[in-house]
Amino acid sequence: MKLALCTDVLANLPYAEMLDRVKSYGINGVEMTAGGWSPCPHVKTDELLASAEKLSAFRQELEKREMTLVALNCSGNPLAPGELGEKHTLSSYKTVELAGKLGVKKIVMMSGLPGGCAEDTIPNWITSTVSWPDYMPEVLRYQWDDVAIPWWKKFVQHAKQHGIEKIAIEEFPSQLVYNPSTLLKLRNAVDEIIGINLDPSHLIAIGADPIAAARKLEGAVFHVHGKDARIERGLVEIDGLLETQPVTETKSRTWNYVAVGCGQDLQWWKAFFSVLRMTGYDGYVSLEMEDLTMSVEAGLQTSVDALNASISR
């Protein structure tokens, strides 16, 4: 395995300076956002698609540093009703086109989340047991059969036409794919070009075990995010894991995203990567630093040190 960095954490730096900073950590791989929710600080997708000269200059900055663009990220909600879904669908299609021009074979996305019916205007995430009230089974049928599966079948064809070999979907709360079983449901219904971007933090935050998930997902792990979460003792025992407070309210939340090693210890991380390697994954691990309890620099260095000490090389 090799270490990469999700570069949005260095959004304050211009493109070339960002690459130099990444190199200073001994990292030669980058995952950069090209669409979705991100402001895409380092990838101006429309400009790069429109200008062969700018596209060439973009590539040259990577090449002269001997760095690899391991994936383009377009995490958003293309299945949302109305304007948001249309915007994120368009950026997803453009990300694929840009990946094709750059020779990038893998994109990282989220599944999206539809509304609860054709008339709904906001996404609707069903998390309650489907027993009562009895409207939920039809909501789930609509979301999967009428919206998600048709959208993804069409999108996969577009991706293949542009040379994409892997679509790594991050399992994320408030998305239709949020755990291994929902990922496999989409993969089985659409195409094996779809796999998972296995982000341990999101499974930890819902009480799942990423190591067990890695075993279940053998052959379907296309990408891995190095990102940790901490269940906050003294709070989770009272309110449980369902958390709606903003991520900035770190002191009162029942769980938080933290630097790698500040949630699970290094022995856990070594076991996680060992099982991933044992089940066939030997690709990039992209550090995604979203710890709001410390400075960006401290979070990056803490995470780089922990990942260097634990990934299976």
Results as ranks from 00 to 15, higher is better:
S312M: 13
R59H: 11
V43W: 09
S174Y: 12
A52M: 11
L69R: 08
A11F: 09
S111C: 10
E288M: 05
C262P: 00
W144D: 03
K166W: 00
M294K: 13
L241A: 08
R21L: 06
E63I: 15
A212P: 00
S75M: 15
K160T: 01
R313E: 13
L84T: 12
F273A: 09
V304T: 04
A168C: 01
E192N: 15
I311H: 06
S303W: 08
G163Q: 01
D305Q: 15
L292I: 02
P81T: 04
Y142A: 06
V190G: 07
E249W: 09
Y281I: 06
N73D: 13
F172K: 05
H158N: 02
F273L: 07
Q60G: 06
Q245P: 01
K101Y: 08
T244K: 11
K64M: 11
P246F: 03
C6V: 11
K251A: 15
K154D: 15
L48Y: 13
L19K: 06
T293I: 04
A34P: 02
L176V: 03
L5F: 10
F273D: 07
A50Y: 04
W144P: 06
A214G: 07
I149Q: 02
I169H: 02
A229C: 12
G263R: 05
A220R: 08
M278P: 00
D209V: 10
D291H: 10
L198T: 02
Y257M: 03
K105N: 03
G100Q: 01
F58H: 13
Q175R: 12
A214E: 11
G76Y: 14
R230C: 08
R65E: 10
L287K: 02
I204S: 05
C6P: 00
K94R: 15
S252R: 13
F222D: 00
E290L: 06
T254R: 13
A159L: 01
G35Q: 10
E171R: 03
V224H: 03
L19T: 07
T33L: 02
A220C: 11
A212Y: 04
C117Y: 11
N197T: 03
C6T: 11
T127S: 13
M1K: 02
